[in-house]
Structure formats: structure tokens, C-alpha cells
Amino acid sequence: MSESLKIAVLVKEVPDTYGDRHLDLETGLADRGASDAVLDEIGGRAVEVAVSYAEANEGTEVVAVTMGPESATKALREALAIGADSAVHVSDEALAGADLGLTAEVLAAAVERLDVDLVLAGNQSTDGLGGVLPAMLAELLGRPHATNLDAIEIAGDGITGTRASDFGAMTLSTPLPAVASITDRLPDARFPSFKGNSAAKKKPLETLTAADLGVAPENPEAPRSILISVAARPPREGGVKITDEGDGGAKIAEFLDQNRLIGEAS
């Protein structure tokens, strides 16, 4: 069965992992100025899943949603260029450094307001690597979650998929509304066309504050996880580098032996 759906895709602006990434040593936050920011690759794949479904099912609406600083608009424009129809940007200085609980609360409120059938996300972002937000969101929304999916089939009334679990592959199914997350086994997002890029500039992009969503970032009643220290590990330095002159293997074995890294014969 195929049918038109409303799908929210969670995306995130992250530092480009192909460059060096930094934490601000005062705030402990990702220093977004110190590295290039890009649309998280896994979020791009989630947009691709939603847009592919929308192309095959007329009337389907795809909304890209993010919470992040002003600069995160760029990641949303990338999602729009891939083919999302509209975007919602929750941008509020009071949310800088939000912990997982507050982030989930904000995203849940944003999604609730959109009244979507399906929330789609990447299984984990490349910077935080938490892998917990989709499940938190599902709990707050009172919906089932089908997460860490290597394969996903969206139908009008539900989804099925293959979950990469700790000990093997699990076949899951759930009716909609639901929350799903995908792994990087799903295809990369398409490269936006020239047409896609120019269309993206004209698509609606709504900016909201925490207050617009009825969320109080500074609520003293809510327990939060707070950062109490941050330190940069001294950069790892290269050691000995030699050029193989026919005895490279033997030289490595000598090094390993000197450092007691060769086990007993078993």
C-alpha cells in the first residue's frame, strides 16, 4: 500500500569529519567556527529515504527539522536541495549546550507541532555519536521506535525494516505514527542538481525559538546533565619512521618485542 504521508527528517549541522575537529575549551561545545560545518552525512541519507518515498507517493510532504545555531540554516538548505519540501529551524541562544534531555524535549515539541506520521533520523550523528535521540523522542511522543535500520520499507500505514542489533539482524514492523532511524548501510543522499539548489532557496524555512515551542530551557525543576570539565588530550606524536630496506618486518617484530607486545606461544 502506498499513500501520501507527512515525514519529518531530523538533520544536524556537524563539523566536517574530513578536517580536524575542535571543542571549545571554555564551554566544552563543538567549536563550530574552527572547522567547516556540513549537513551530517547520515542525516542526508535519511532525507534521501524520505524524498525517494515522496517521489513515488504523490502528496507526501517532507519537512527537514534541526535544532542548532544560526549557521545550521546551511544544513537545512542542503536538505531542501536534496528534495525536502520545507524546513524548521529551532534556533535559540538559550539552547546552546543543551543536554540530551532538553534536545529531545525541543525536537519532540517541534515534531508534535508538525503533526507528522513518521519521524526519520540517522542512527547517530558523526560528532556526538550518542545514538539515543530517536528513542528518547519516541518515548516523549508516546510512539514506537524502529531504529538502527539497515533497510527500511515505508508503506502508507506502517514501516518494516531490518535492525542491525548487537548480536544479529532483527526484522521489525510498526504501524504509524512512529519514529525510525537508519544506518549508513542505506544509500548516500543524491548530489543536489543545479535545479535543486536554486529551488532550495525558495522553499519555506521557518525559524522558531524555544518559547515558540513552549519549552523552557532554564527550567530549574528539570534535572540536566552538565559539563563540569573539558580538556584536550595532548596530540599524539609520531614516533620512529623508517624506510623498508628488506628488513622492515623484522624491525617491527623487534620493536614489538622490546615493548612486550608479542604474546606467549599458544
Partner: peptide
């Protein structure tokens, strides 16, 4: 990778790796 390696060898893995395996076995024996 050499910037973070404690011990690096520039060369052909197909000659170095078998030699390394042999040398480890010899040292374990």
C-alpha cells in the same frame, strides 16, 4: 597515519607483513 604511529615503516605491505609474521613466530617459539 605516520603522524600518530609509534613505529612506522614505509614500504610494500606484501613483503613486510609476511616477514613480520615469520619474525613474530620465531620470537614466540
Amino acid at each position: 597515519i605516520f603522524d600518530i604511529a609509534d613505529f612506522g615503516v614505509v614500504g610494500d605491505q606484501f613483503t613486510i607483513v609476511p616477514q613480520l609474521t615469520e619474525a613474530i613466530r620465531a620470537r614466540k617459539a
